[in-house]
């Protein structure tokens, strides 16, 4: 009762529009305060108003906002559904990949490795890939700690250690956003011409990318799956940068409601990217023999290239000098 009366006092003084939006309620006295306040229900008012605001005369207009009810919904989402969605995506994807590995095993190079290699990615391509990938790994881990660290890590390492670790991860999250964004921009500029979707990609997806058999669909430099990863990184990374920088500079770009929406979008896109990148990391390392060479030394086995990127290999050979060495 005391709480209801206190809220009635607060709202009656601060929001003259509140009563106008609740016509069935008892009219308040001229003083603006109804001591009985039987008709004032806190939740009704919070549901009806996006913000509970008053009138102020100081320059800082943010001071007029007394209560922002959507913040409660946002907080409940972060404490509940977001944790379960995170667990479902991260653990679910890891379980799927483990199952795939147990069923399919490592995708080997047909007939084993050969003796000849071909340059697949130059030094600069590998550089921008690793800048983006290394930044993303730290951003993903630190982001997951923000969402679930207090439930997962804190019970394991204790408050003091968790506080220290979380502090460093939070700093890392802010500062590594810049190399990550730089890497995404570089990849967009350098690789976009190879990643324009076409009919060949549909056929690649129709055949399951050759993951489930010994036949491999035709492909140029990037196949359908790699193009999907590229656009997930570019569009997802762009969305993460936009929402992340919005959160990094509070109230510069949007108000508190906008920042809550930005945080929800940031978390949602991050989780989709984490799921996709787990698949990318798997197939680029333990899932496929010879794939990691492309980003390690840059030289891939010609038999691997012929199986997975036959049209690209033909293009490279066509550009080769008469001595047989790639023109690159």
């Amino acid at each position: 009762m005391f709480k209801a009366a206190l809220i009635a006092l607060l709202l009656a003084a601060a929001i003259p529009t509140a009563h106008a939006q609740a016509p069935s309620r008892q009219e308040a006295p001229a003083s603006g305060f109804n001591p009985t306040a039987t008709e004032v229900k806190e939740q009704d008012l919070l549901n009806a108003l996006s913000k509970v605001e008053g009138r102020i005369s100081i320059p800082d207009t943010r001071a007029a906002t007394l209560i922002q009810p959507a913040g409660q919904t946002w907080r409940d989402y972060r404490r509940g559904p977001l944790l379960w969605i995170t667990a479902a995506i991260v653990l679910g994807m890891m379980a799927l990949l483990t199952l795939f590995y147990l069923i399919r095993g490592r995708i080997r190079i047909e007939g084993g490795r050969g003796t000849r290699t071909v340059l697949r990615f130059g030094a600069f391509e590998r550089f921008m890939h690793w800048v983006t990938a290394a930044s993303w790994c730290v951003l993903a881990v630190s982001g997951l700690n923000i969402v679930a660290g207090s439930r997962v890590l804190l019970p394991l390492i204790g408050q003091d250690a968790f506080s220290t670790v979380s502090g460093w991860l939070k700093y890392s999250h802010n500062f590594l956003a810049f190399p990550f964004t730089s890497g995404v921009v570089l990849m967009l500029l350098v690789w976009v011409r190879h990643n324009i979707p076409n009919r060949m990609d549909l056929e690649w997806f129709r055949q399951g990318g050759g993951l489930f058999g010994h036949r491999h669909p035709h492909s140029r430099k990037f196949n359908g799956g790699q193009k999907a990863v590229f656009w997930i990184v570019v569009l997802g990374g762009g969305a993460l940068a936009a929402t992340g920088f919005t959160l990094m500079f509070p109230f510069y770009i949007t108000d508190v409601t906008g920042m809550q929406l930005a945080q929800i979008a940031h978390g949602g896109v991050s989780l989709l990217m984490i799921g996709a990148m787990l698949g990318h990391i798997y197939i680029g390392s333990v899932g496929m023999e010879g794939a990691l060479d492309a980003m390690n030394s840059g030289q891939v086995d010609r038999k691997w290239a012929a199986a997975h990127h036959d049209l690209w290999l033909a293009e490279v050979d066509a550009k080769s000098t008469p001595s047989g060495h790639p023109a690159e």
Binding site: M128, V131, A134, F175, F178, M248
Partner: peptide
């Protein structure tokens, strides 16, 4: 070697971001 250069560059940009922020 490229990986190490990339990680070093990443750290350098992050340190720059620290001072900028």
């Amino acid at each position: 070697r490229v990986f190490l250069i990339a990680v070093t560059s990443m750290i350098a940009v992050a340190v720059g971001a620290y001072y900028g922020l």
